[in-house]
Amino acid sequence: MCWPIRVYELTKTMATYRASLSLPTAAEPTQSHTRRSLRAFFRSWVNWIALLIIVIGFLMAITPKEWLPHDPTAVNPALRLQPPSLFSGEGDFLLGTDTLGRDILSRSIYAARWTYLVSVSAVVISTVLGTMAGLSAGYFRGWLDTIIARLIDMQLAFPIVLLSIAVLAVSGPSLLNMILVLGLVDWARYARVVRGSALSLREEDFVDAARATGATSWRIMMRHILPNILSSIVVLTTFSTARLMLTESALSFLGLGVTPPATTWGSMIGGGRDYILQAWWISAIPGTLITLTVLAINLAGDGLRDAFDPRGER
């Protein structure tokens, strides 16, 4: 196998690699493209179902505490481990109670708000942070790129458990701190992808053209480069939301979860972990909710990617 062929093949494959991260080929996106993509997205019934699940979760999240059948935080050891009346036909608790006698149904609905709040806020932070860092690094290059690239390397290599404990030690457990940790953990993924495409997009003709007309760097980044990577960022975002919902449950084991009496689906699963055999419903019900939601978000992400992919045949 001689050298030139390998380089040729590599060129081809690296193009595929970037494509597989769903980076669109360089082309100025238009409004009609976006509209067409959205139409494509809504043509699939799978995407509709995915959206429906997400919306139901969202409705659960905004349900006021007072509307719930029971107080989701009321502890009563006398009522602990009641099986779901849905199956047994006995008792006041449709989906049973947990180790402290709290109603699982009310708690699951109550937990939705924290689950969504945490993962969505964390994703927003990491998206904004990662995109800005990646854009500036890829566009300006030079020392800024060097620093950001090193930071990305470090971030990707640093264990999240250690980071979480560090934050816990420095500023104590709080909702905000957990969101910050999750956001900090994920920014590097975005930065890496965005930086890669900014690096090659800045060499494209339409960027040169913009530069020639005297556009500022900020304007070029925001108006010409960012729109080109937006769809891949959107896709990354959906996958991140899903992953962070799961990561959150791991963090609650470290004390960095939402602090009681607030709760999330993830920490509800953790709380029922010990009772899987004796009282399966404690973990199975939030487990089902989180699984369905993560599944829906992932399918929606796939759908979005397919719809926005300018190379897609449809």
């Binding site: 899903a242 799961l246 449950s249 993830g266 699963i269 972990r273 973990s283 487990g287 989180i290 699984t291 369905l292 993560v294 599944l295 992932n298 399918l299």
Partner: peptide, 10 residues
């Protein structure tokens, strides 16, 4: 995706 959406310990 279902497989991926279930927490590992579970």
């Amino acid at each position: 995706l279902l497989g991926q959406a279930i927490p590992g310990f579970y």
